[in-house]
Amino acid sequence: MGTVLWLIAAIFVIAGVVTIVRGALLYGIVLIVVGLLIGPGGVSIFA
Protein backbone atom coordinates (compact mmCIF):
# COMPACT_ATOMS: atom_id res chain seq x y z
CA MET A 1 0.00 0.00 0.00
CA GLY A 2 2.86 2.37 0.79
CA THR A 3 4.36 1.90 -2.66
CA VAL A 4 1.07 2.70 -4.35
CA LEU A 5 0.65 5.87 -2.28
CA TRP A 6 4.24 6.87 -3.06
CA LEU A 7 3.64 6.45 -6.80
CA ILE A 8 0.40 8.44 -6.69
CA ALA A 9 2.12 11.18 -4.69
CA ALA A 10 5.00 11.30 -7.17
CA ILE A 11 2.57 11.65 -10.08
CA PHE A 12 0.81 14.55 -8.33
CA VAL A 13 4.08 16.35 -7.60
CA ILE A 14 5.39 15.88 -11.15
CA ALA A 15 2.06 17.07 -12.57
CA GLY A 16 2.23 20.09 -10.25
CA VAL A 17 5.72 21.04 -11.45
CA VAL A 18 4.67 20.67 -15.10
CA THR A 19 1.58 22.79 -14.43
CA ILE A 20 3.68 25.53 -12.83
CA VAL A 21 6.03 25.52 -15.84
CA ARG A 22 3.01 25.88 -18.13
CA GLY A 23 1.96 29.00 -16.22
CA ALA A 24 -0.82 27.90 -13.85
CA LEU A 25 0.99 28.67 -10.61
CA LEU A 26 -1.87 28.24 -8.14
CA TYR A 27 -3.10 24.95 -9.61
CA GLY A 28 0.47 23.63 -9.67
CA ILE A 29 0.99 24.49 -6.02
CA VAL A 30 -2.28 22.75 -5.12
CA LEU A 31 -1.17 19.59 -6.95
CA ILE A 32 2.20 19.59 -5.18
CA VAL A 33 0.58 20.06 -1.75
CA VAL A 34 -1.88 17.22 -2.43
CA GLY A 35 1.01 15.02 -3.53
CA LEU A 36 2.90 15.78 -0.33
CA LEU A 37 -0.19 15.02 1.78
CA ILE A 38 -0.75 11.66 0.07
CA GLY A 39 2.87 10.53 0.16
CA PRO A 40 3.96 8.18 2.91
CA GLY A 41 7.00 10.42 3.58
CA GLY A 42 4.73 13.35 4.41
CA VAL A 43 1.56 13.65 6.40
CA SER A 44 -0.47 10.90 4.81
CA ILE A 45 -4.22 11.51 4.81
CA PHE A 46 -4.84 7.76 4.39
CA ALA A 47 -2.81 6.46 7.34
Score class of each variant (00 low, 15 high):
10 A>H: 10
26 L>E: 10
24 A>N: 13
23 G>Y: 01
8 I>Y: 02
26 L>Q: 08
6 W>Q: 11
11 I>G: 07
14 I>Q: 08
34 V>Q: 02
18 V>P: 03
14 I>S: 06
13 V>F: 05
16 G>T: 07
4 V>K: 09
19 T>P: 04
32 I>F: 05
16 G>K: 03
11 I>H: 00
35 G>A: 03
24 A>K: 15
21 V>Q: 12
30 V>S: 03
19 T>F: 02
13 V>T: 14
34 V>I: 13
17 V>D: 02
18 V>L: 13
30 V>T: 09
9 A>N: 03
24 A>P: 01
6 W>D: 08
14 I>P: 01
25 L>R: 15
21 V>K: 11
12 F>C: 14
7 L>R: 11
19 T>M: 14
9 A>C: 06
15 A>C: 14
29 I>D: 06
20 I>N: 08
23 G>S: 08
29 I>A: 15
34 V>R: 00
12 F>S: 01
35 G>D: 07
29 I>Y: 11
26 L>I: 11
16 G>Y: 04
8 I>K: 04
7 L>W: 13
27 Y>Q: 12
14 I>A: 15
11 I>S: 09
22 R>I: 15
20 I>G: 05
24 A>L: 08
6 W>G: 02
19 T>R: 11
5 L>F: 11
27 Y>K: 15
20 I>F: 09
31 L>H: 04
32 I>P: 03
11 I>A: 14
29 I>H: 00
4 V>C: 07
32 I>E: 05
21 V>Y: 15
20 I>S: 03
34 V>C: 12
21 V>A: 11
15 A>D: 08
30 V>G: 02
18 V>T: 13
8 I>S: 00
32 I>C: 09
27 Y>W: 10
23 G>I: 10
29 I>C: 01
21 V>R: 10
29 I>N: 06
30 V>R: 01
31 L>Y: 05
25 L>K: 15
20 I>A: 10
30 V>K: 02
14 I>Y: 08
15 A>M: 10
34 V>P: 03
22 R>E: 05
20 I>H: 05
13 V>N: 07
4 V>T: 14
27 Y>A: 12
12 F>P: 05
11 I>N: 02
16 G>L: 06
28 G>T: 00
27 Y>C: 00
4 V>L: 11
15 A>K: 11
22 R>W: 12
8 I>D: 04
18 V>M: 13
11 I>L: 11
28 G>N: 02
8 I>C: 04
22 R>M: 13
24 A>T: 07
12 F>K: 04
17 V>Q: 05
16 G>Q: 04
33 V>Q: 00
10 A>P: 00
20 I>W: 10
18 V>A: 13
10 A>T: 12
26 L>S: 10
24 A>S: 13
18 V>D: 06
4 V>W: 07
22 R>C: 09
10 A>Q: 13
4 V>F: 10
17 V>T: 12
25 L>W: 15
34 V>S: 09
5 L>W: 06
30 V>N: 06
18 V>C: 10
11 I>Q: 05
4 V>Y: 10
21 V>W: 15
15 A>L: 11
